[in-house]
């Protein structure tokens, strides 16, 4: 292992020991920093548009006015935080089964995306929404009314999944 050279006080030159020229050098740096571009995002006005790989709140994909979900229950089985509750029922449609009740408790959800990975129908995906606030616990349980998002609005994520999964 190569020995790193330790700089000790005795290695400093006379000018460095005087301290004040070094402070002036440092001040040059700090003053230069003042005029560099800022990194702040003025949040409520300027919002961040996440990339397609972002895992926001999970939503159900809506196709032709109906959900794609066939209520197989895989997502609720795989969910490590036990946030998803599905109740299945029969339907006249081609897919034969649909969820009567589909609830995600957003206080439990950990945004891991396992439900999305487990889903055989590509019916539950992670959206880009990251602004989630609730006033009470009941409000945090999202039913089908809040979960259903039309396919067109989730195009980016669906394309991303097709490309990388």
């Amino acid at each position: 292992m190569a020995q790193t050279k330790i700089t000790r006080t005795s290695d400093l030159t006379f000018w460095q020991k005087l301290y004040i020229p070094e402070i002036i050098k440092g001040m040059k740096i700090t003053i230069r920093q003042m005029f560099l571009p800022k990194f702040t995002r003025q949040y409520p006005e300027e919002r961040w548009n996440p990339p397609a790989s972002f895992r926001g709140r999970p939503v159900l994909v809506e196709e032709n006015g109906k959900e794609r979900c066939v209520a197989c229950g895989l997502c609720s089985r795989v969910c490590p935080a036990l946030a998803i509750e599905v109740q299945a029922s029969e339907t006249e449609l081609n897919k034969e089964r649909y969820p009567v009740k589909f609830e995600i408790n957003m206080l439990r959800c950990i945004f891991c995306g396992l439900c999305e990975e487990a889903c055989p129908e590509e019916a539950i995906v992670m959206s880009k929404e990251y602004e989630l606030t609730f006033n009470n616990q009941e409000e945090a349980i999202f039913g089908k009314d809040k979960l259903l998002i039309s396919k067109e609005n989730l195009k980016e994520r669906l394309e991303f999944l097709r490309q990388y999964r």
Partner: peptide, 10 residues
């Protein structure tokens, strides 16, 4: 404000 400017903030 000056501290923020030095740290590239607003």
């Amino acid at each position: 404000r000056v501290s923020a400017f030095i740290q590239n903030r607003i």
